[in-house]
Simulated scan of single mutants.
Amino acid sequence: MKSAVIVFPGSNRDRDMFHALDMITGSRPQHVWHTESTLPDVDLVVVPGGFSYGDYLRSGAIAARSPILKDLVAKAHSGVAVLGVCNGFQILTEAGLLPGALMRNAGLTFVCKDIMMETVNNATRFSSQFQKGQVWRCPVAHHDGNYFADAETIRKVEDNNQVVFRYAEGTNPNGSLNNIAGITNAAGNVLGMMPHPENLVEPLHGGLDGRLLFESLLTAA
Rank of each mutant, 00 (worst) to 15 (best):
F89L: 07
H205C: 13
R15Y: 08
T25W: 14
A168E: 00
M193N: 02
P99G: 12
F130A: 06
V135L: 06
E158H: 14
V111Q: 09
V140I: 11
C138L: 13
V190R: 11
F51C: 12
L177V: 15
G210S: 02
A106H: 07
N161E: 15
A4S: 12
M193I: 13
E94G: 05
Q90L: 02
P67K: 05
T184F: 02
L44E: 07
L72I: 03
E158T: 14
N199Q: 14
G175M: 10
C138E: 08
Q30N: 07
N178R: 15
A181Y: 13
A221W: 14
Q129N: 00
E152P: 01
G133R: 15
E36Y: 06
G88W: 06
F130M: 04
Q129F: 11
Y53V: 01
K156Y: 10
R28Q: 15
W33Y: 13
A141E: 04
M116H: 15
L217Q: 07
R65G: 04
E202G: 01
I183N: 09
H142F: 13
S3E: 02
A74L: 11
M117A: 02
G188H: 06
L92K: 06
A149P: 06
V85C: 09
D55Y: 11
Q131E: 14
A64C: 07
N146T: 00
V164T: 08
R125Q: 13
H143Q: 15
N172Q: 13
P29Q: 06
Q30E: 13
T171L: 09
L44Q: 06
R65P: 01
A74C: 00
F110A: 05
D22V: 03
A76I: 01
Q129T: 09
N174G: 15
P9D: 05
G49S: 11
A141T: 09
Q90F: 05
L44W: 03
V73I: 10
G210N: 05
V85Q: 00
K132G: 11
V157P: 04
S3G: 04
V120L: 04
L212V: 02
A168G: 09
L83I: 01
G54F: 07
G84P: 05
